[in-house]
Design a protein around this nucleic acid. Structure first.
Lengths: 222, 222
DNA sequence: ATTAACACGTGACAC
DNA sequence: TGTGTCACGTGTTAA
């Protein structure tokens, strides 16, 4: 707890009766009976002269800094000790924890869309991930061959009733085996990652399937 | 930038030639020719006595505090000014940003496993979630009616090739509209949450569908 | 009685 | 020229 109502008589040798936040009274030449001679250059021989160039400015600066430390302590949940140093270290730890937590959450959110997508087709995946920027989304289909009759299929769409069923019907009609599927949905959007296998189809047929899927998930431009 | 190699002659009136980090020389009674009389109680009349009880302790404390501020600045990416106050405010802003980011990520991650499952059938959902403990899993199907031809379907299975396709075919054969689907997979297991809708089927037919799904995902006991 | 933490005033610098 | 920031030494206070 910050000590309050301190009667300071330190370096300067002042006398402050009550301090509220800053600049209590600025009582110069009023209170103290005994005072000291600080420096040696100015106002030395004049007698009861108190030298202070930036006294109030420094006061305000200290007040702001302490207020900032207080505000910093306010946003940190884990407080070990009521001390400035402990506040700073706690803030540092909290920031590190938050950053690692953000990283972990992003990781969880990122690897939810199918392990196969990342591990088996990392090259194609990273290539296909990057160009899809924050442009305005509409339906979007990506089909990537992994060789040996296996594909990764990524579909981004806006959620609409019955739409997923149509996709499933399309896949069934092309004799597609779905090895794994992961879907993430956020707000009105969803992104599905299929790991699929087809037995004896040529690539041209898969392109045909891709176009069919595109026509299914594509939303007419307003 | 923190000023270094400052030659202090402030309150105490000392002379420090070179300071490295803390406790430079602790030169007492050596350097200055003129000094001052601070307080009034001790060592006043002795002459050239420099009073300092906690000088080095205060030095170390300041050093630790500044080091903490430096470390705090190190973990904050956005730095507006090289000042203590700015460091603190930047740290506060950064913490707030991180916290909001964590909240948003958690929100995104939380609404991924099917909103309907949580929001529409929270009671049934929580009931059906708990009893499935860490017993040895095999295939498992749960079907919960939400009224108005809507159901939540939860399937827990061991991943096998072609198994998901069979489930999809079964759903298609029962004229099921899949409103949303979310799947999480871990190691050899997967759990899928369907939010489905059927047009005009009776409950008895849904029980039939459920049994069919059970027979599909059920793995023979070894 | 020793110690740690704090506020204070002041000179030194930098812009 | 001043204005703001910094480090310093000190006295005080609470554990």
């Amino acid at each position: 707890m910050p000590r309050r109502a301190r009667a300071p008589c330190g370096g300067g040798g002042e006398e402050v009766k009550e301090e509220d936040f800053v600049d209590s009274v600025l009582n110069f030449a009023g209170g103290g009976a005994d005072e000291i001679d600080g420096g040696e250059q100015q106002a030395a021989a004049a007698g009861t002269e108190y030298k202070s160039k930036n006294l109030v400015a420094e006061r305000r600066r200290r007040g702001r800094l302490n207020g900032n430390i207080l505000a910093l302590r306010a946003v940190v949940p884990k407080i070990t000790k009521m001390s400035k140093e402990a506040t700073l270290t706690d803030a540092i730890d909290h920031i590190k924890n938050l950053q690692s937590e953000v990283l972990e959450l992003q990781h969880q959110l990122a690897d939810s869309p199918g392990e196969a997508w990342e591990k088996q087709a990392s090259a194609s995946c990273s290539e296909s991930f990057v160009p899809t920027e924050n442009t305005h989304y509409q339906g979007q289909v990506e089909l990537i061959s992994l060789g040996s009759c296996k594909y990764n299929l990524k579909i981004f769409w806006t959620k609409r009733a019955g739409l997923f069923t149509k996709v499933l019907e399309a896949l069934c009609s092309y004799n597609v085996q779905v090895l794994s599927l992961n879907t993430i949905s956020f707000y009105g959007y969803a992104e599905s990652f299929f790991s699929i296998e087809v037995k004896g189809e040529h690539d041209v047929v898969m392109v045909e399937l891709r176009n069919l899927l595109c026509s299914i998930v594509e939303v007419p431009i307003i």
